[in-house]
């Protein structure tokens, strides 16, 4: 028979076990709930992005192909006008120039919104076009190499946006003259590396301050891609971005 002391002891242990089971159950439930919620959030994020990108694509193509064509058509029709005097010739010339500028602006807006080439020809061509546009206007040199076919269109949009954001930051802030940008395939991952020879920055300050729209955009898109981003920077020496994106 158990002594009185032992009985208390057993009851205590029993009680503890029950309590532990209850706590474990509670914790597991919470973790499960959070995981589910995270997965749901990620799904929602993905859906939001899909919706956003789809809308952008539609608006960009409407602007680019439709409105652009109408403006060009008007310009074509104006060429048939034979001005009566110098004044009307000047007005005509002015109108034509304004139309040209409108078309240029319109098409730049459309390209920034969603480059048609991304849909038609894929990520490599879209990045090539983006880089030529950027280097044309900034004087920075970009050595670009792409060797990683087989990414889905949905993912390509996110990768394009991330690259666009990073390159924009480099051009705006880094004072770099040379950028090396490679995309390669290593095992089951697409590996994106962007290295510049600019002034670099204080990493701690950067991470703390990186609540800007651009950086937030990169982070959220990386989250949807389940990508890992690493960053190394040295003040005065440049910056190195490494992003690994699983293909599946």
């Amino acid at each position: 028979m158990y002594s009185e002391e032992n009985k208390i002891y057993i009851a205590l242990v029993g009680g503890l076990v029950v309590l532990m089971v209850l706590i474990t159950f509670y914790l597991v439930t919470i973790i499960k709930y959070h995981r589910k919620k995270a997965a749901f959030n990620l799904e929602k994020l993905q859906a939001d992005f899909d919706h956003l990108d789809h809308e952008r694509e539609r608006i960009a193509s409407d602007l680019h192909d439709d409105l652009g064509s109408f403006l060009s058509a008007i310009r074509l029709h104006l060429q048939r006008v034979e001005p009566r005097n110098e004044e009307s010739a000047a007005i005509l010339k002015f109108s034509e120039e304004q139309l040209d500028q409108s078309v240029n602006k319109l098409r730049r807006i459309a390209f920034n919104m969603m480059p048609g080439v991304l849909h038609r020809k894929g990520l490599d061509e879209a990045l090539t076009e983006l880089i030529s546009l950027m280097t044309n206007s900034s004087g920075i040199r970009v050595n670009y190499k792409y060797n990683a076919d087989g990414i889905s269109h949905a993912k390509a949009i996110h990768i394009y946006r991330i690259a666009q954001e990073l390159l924009n930051n480099i051009i705006k802030h880094s004072k770099a003259t040379l950028v090396t940008f490679t995309i390669s395939k290593i095992k089951n991952e697409m590996v994106l590396q962007i290295i510049d020879n600019g002034i670099g920055f204080d990493k701690k300050l950067f991470l703390k301050k990186s609540s800007g729209l651009g950086m937030r955009n990169i982070k959220t898109r990386a989250e949807v891609l389940k990508a890992k981003i690493s960053l190394a920077t040295l003040s005065g020496k440049g910056t190195y971005f490494l992003i690994k994106i699983p293909f599946k």
């Binding site: 109408f70 008007i74 074509l76 029709h77 060429q79």
Partner: peptide, 14 residues
């Protein structure tokens, strides 16, 4: 060939 009538018209007249 162009999918916008107005552009084709302009081109034709020109």
């Amino acid at each position: 060939a162009d999918d916008h009538d107005i552009y084709r018209d302009g081109l034709k007249l020109l």
